[in-house]
Each structure stands twice: as C-alpha cells, then as structure tokens.
C-alpha cells in the first residue's frame, strides 16, 4: 500500500526565552508512516505531543531534528527543511488539515469560509459554493446560518464549518485534530461517514480523536505517542 508520508526520528522542543531560556522537550524519536486509504490515529493522554506532531506535519511547528518525507507533485520532499514557499504548495495540493478550532475572518460568510480552499486552488466560485452547500447540509448546519460569518456561531456549529472546510478539497493526505470534540452524536456519525468516504478514495488520514466511539469506528491503526516521550530514547 502506498505510504505518502513517512516520519523518521523527529524531535521537537520549545525554548522559552522569556523564562530564562528553559527548554521543554515535547517529543523525540518520532517515527511512523501513514498509508493511503487508511485512517491512522495518534493515541495517548493530553500533553503527550499529539497535536504538536500534527502541527509539525503541516509545517506549522518547526522541527528540531529528523525528517518528514511527503510525496508531493510526483517527487519526495522533506517538509522539515522545506522553504515556506514549498510548504505553501504542499498545503495547497497535498496536505489538508482540520484544526481544533475555526479561525474566523470578519465578514466572510460560513459558505465562503468553506468554499475558499477550492477557490484558492483555482475552482470557479459558484461551483465551489455548490460543493460547500452540499457539505454544510450533510453536516446539518441550518441553512439560515450559511450566509452569516461564523464568529457568533456555537462551538459545535463552528466546528462543523471547520470540518466542511477541511473535507471539501481532495488532498491525498488529511490531518484531523479532534474534529468531533464538540459535536453531538448525530453529527459525529456524519464525520465518521465523511472519513470512510475519504478512505474509500485512497486518502491517507491521520487524526486525534478523544472520543472512544469515533476512534473505534474510524481507526485502522493506533500509534501510541507516549512511545515518543523525550526521556524514553536511549542513546
């Protein structure tokens, strides 16, 4: 099975210059790969570094050591050392990301927030909006909210907008940071369906799910992040 993303020996720490330069190691020796058509889940307690790993894979957090090899544009690229411009191209074409919280933009409607990733990739605005409508309907977001900016929405409504925005594109790799945290059972089931549909089209998913039922329903493999605790590495 193709592995579009391979992580080897990645380490990450934060240096707090405002706190006398103390160094907080987060993870070390992170090595795994994800496969097309599968949903891999990062497991472990809060603070183990799951979100940090996802953020490194999206080029959001800097990587101290190691490699993150991504299949991009018929080549292999090390995301850990790629230029900002390359990371942007990878985000546009190869790696999608559903963050934990929606970052709202003033005055932009929920519909356009969802359609935007497609418009950025050159799709016609009206056809992008059509797909956005379909996804928002599938996620049971009341139609009267579509034309409003999501800043005033409830947590669950914002998260559904965020999920729709992340799932609307056809990225071959999709990272999910607790997409179901504030959803009710009905909408959790919709997300499970959406993940199954992505798997069926050969997308490689990597996610964090605290919800036991969702994890059971979507996970093909679970990677225990506590194995990457910085103290655990000998040598």
């Amino acid at each position: 099975m193709p592995t579009p993303l391979v992580v080897s020996d990645v380490a990450k720490s934060f240096t707090m210059h405002l706190r006398d330069g103390i160094k907080l190691p987060v993870v070390a020796g992170v090595s795994f790969s994800i496969r097309a058509g599968e949903c891999t889940v990062l497991g472990g307690p809060s603070g183990a570094g799951k979100s940090s790993i996802l953020k490194m894979l999206y080029g959001n957090y800097a990587v101290d050591e190691g490699q993150i090899i991504v299949k991009h544009d018929d080549g292999l690229i090390d995301l850990a050392t790629a230029s900002p411009r390359t990371v942007l191209a990878i985000r546009r074409q190869t790696i999608g990301y559903v963050s934990q919280f929606l970052r709202t933009v003033p005055r932009v409607s929920a519909l356009d927030v969802v359609a935007e990733p497609l418009v950025e990739r050159g799709e016609d605005r009206e056809s992008a909006r059509g797909k956005a409508r379909a996804l928002l309907a599938q996620l049971n977001l009341p139609e009267k909210l579509w034309a409003l900016p999501p800043a005033t929405f409830s947590g669950g409504e914002q998260q559904r907008v965020n999920i729709a925005r992340g799932f609307i594109t056809e990225h071959p790799i999709l990272l999910l940071d607790e997409p179901t945290a504030s959803l009710d059972a009905r909408n959790r089931d919709v997300v499970i369906e959406l993940i199954a549909a992505k798997k069926a089209t050969g997308v490689a998913l990597l996610g964090i799910f605290h919800d036991h039922d969702v994890r059971e329903a979507v996970a093909d493999r679970i990677i225990d992040v506590t194995a990457f605790a910085p103290g655990k590495i000998a040598a």
Binding site: F14, T15, M16, H17, L18, K55, G59, N60, Y61, A62, P84, V87, L88
Partner: peptide
C-alpha cells in the same frame, strides 16, 4: 522569518516570543 502561522504559533527568536 518563515510562514506566518509558523512564526506566530511557534516563535523561536526571543524577540518574536516577546
């Protein structure tokens, strides 16, 4: 210097952290 979200979410220089 770097990606905007990277610099803001994971600032590394002392001055950027401030």
């Amino acid at each position: 210097s770097g990606l905007t979200d990277g610099v803001l979410d994971d600032p590394r220089a002392p001055y950027t952290q401030l």
